[in-house]
């Protein structure tokens, strides 16, 4: 458990930095979470953050890596999976599944043990 103050409010995270209360999330908080991950958010990051939040809202689960790759291929007009993977790792160097979920304010992916 860890916590920090954001906009005068105490935000709690687990030891790995995932939000305890998903309802705390807003775009400003995403910037703070990204900074903790040493990720500087660009428009490309934001597109994926919005996509993954929509996906989670709509289907109640985090997407499979495969779906993320597919989305990136479509969004960025990339020819194949390999290019798409390279692209997301450039955005989220320490693992897109974990870092994207964390910054987007989603729960820790259960697959990552």
């Amino acid at each position: 458990m860890a916590s920090f103050v954001y906009n005068g409010k105490t935000i709690e995270t687990d030891d790995e930095g995932y939000l305890q209360n998903l309802g705390d999330w807003d775009k400003g908080l995403a910037e703070v979470l990204a900074k903790q991950e040493n990720v500087e958010l660009t428009e490309k990051h934001w597109k994926l953050i919005e996509w993954i939040r929509d996906y989670f809202q709509k289907f109640q689960v985090a997407p499979a890596i495969k779906s993320l790759t597919k989305e990136v291929m479509a969004l960025e007009n990339l020819p194949d999976k390999k290019e798409a993977n390279k692209f997301v790792y450039e955005l989220f160097p320490e693992g897109p599944a974990k870092q994207l979920a964390k910054i987007a304010g989603l729960p820790k992916p259960t697959g990552c043990v």
């Binding site: 709509k58 289907f59 109640q60 689960v61 997407p63 499979a64 495969k66 779906s67």
Partner: peptide
């Protein structure tokens, strides 16, 4: 509680 009926539509395409 979460509504899990929303997950079924993607089980085949996204989760193999």
């Amino acid at each position: 509680k979460k509504n899990f009926s929303m997950t079924y539509p993607i089980l085949i395409d996204d989760f193999e």
